[in-house]
Amino acid sequence: MKALLIVYHTQSGSSQALAEAAASGAAAEEGVTVELKRAMEADANDLRACDGVLFVTPENFGYLSGGMKDFFDRTYYPCDPGSLARPYMLIVSCGNDGSGAVRQLERIVKGYPLKAAAEPLIVRGEPSAEHLEAASDLGLSFAAGLGMGIF
């Protein structure tokens, strides 16, 4: 059985809605367990125990949210930098273009190292039904890829 960890940070609820949609999609895949955790509650043990991780974060002032950055600050050294090869995917909720959060996360995860399994999903504005469906599809495709051993 493979394990997918979904780590999210939210203040307005937008990122949480996207994370929950992704978790719902991922849960449809047999042979994969899905754990949904707030960034402030997730830790290095969660990251070490998963086979893949999906990050869902708002972009605040052109960067990752403080809560998501805190997750990386707390897990990097306990995860034995350089030895945690896992696939990851990213969803960014933003009011602008999301590119700053994407760049910052890509730079941070190189040290773990985590490897991108897909292009980031960037959601501008309040998540619509189409955005939630895209998040669900991303969660399902990630879980399916983990289950089949593609990632």
Rank of each mutant, 00 (worst) to 15 (best):
Y63H: 13
A143C: 10
F151Q: 08
G67H: 06
Y8W: 07
P78N: 03
D46L: 02
N96P: 03
V7E: 02
K115H: 15
R103Y: 07
I108H: 04
R38W: 04
T57A: 00
A144L: 14
A26R: 01
R124D: 00
A21P: 15
G95S: 13
G100H: 06
L47G: 09
Y88L: 01
S99T: 15
I108W: 04
E119A: 13
V53D: 06
L121C: 03
G98M: 00
V53F: 04
Y88N: 04
E133R: 15
P120A: 09
K37A: 05
H131T: 02
K37V: 05
Y88E: 07
L121D: 00
L140A: 15
R107H: 04
I91P: 03
G139A: 10
L18A: 01
K2M: 12
E106K: 14
D51G: 01
V34F: 10
L84D: 05
V32G: 01
F72Q: 02
E41L: 07
F72L: 03
A116Y: 06
N60Y: 14
Y88F: 14
C50M: 07
V53C: 01
A85D: 14
A28T: 14
Y8H: 14
K2P: 04
A85T: 12
G67Y: 00
K2L: 03
T33R: 07
M1L: 03
E29M: 11
P78S: 02
Q11T: 13
D70S: 06
F142N: 03
I6C: 02
Y77E: 15
V7S: 10
I6H: 06
E133P: 11
A26Q: 05
G62D: 09
D46M: 04
C79F: 10
S136I: 08
L47R: 01
E126H: 00
T75S: 12
A129S: 15
F55I: 07
H9L: 05
I108F: 05
G31H: 06
S141N: 13
A117C: 00
A17R: 08
G13R: 00
S136P: 10
F72P: 08
V53W: 07
Q16M: 06
P78K: 01
H131Q: 12
G98W: 10
Y63W: 14
M68Q: 11
A26D: 09
L146N: 12
P81R: 05
D73G: 01
A101I: 08
C79V: 13
Q11S: 09
E35Y: 11
A17C: 09
A85N: 09
Q11I: 13
E35T: 15
G149Y: 08
M68N: 05
A27K: 11
G100P: 01
A42H: 11
L105R: 10
A19D: 02
D46Q: 00
Y76G: 09
L132A: 05
R38C: 07
A143M: 10
K115T: 08
I122M: 10
E119S: 09
Y76N: 09
A117W: 13
I108E: 01
I150K: 11
V92T: 05
P58Y: 06
I108K: 03
T75M: 07
D43G: 15
V34I: 01
P87D: 00
A3P: 13
T33E: 11
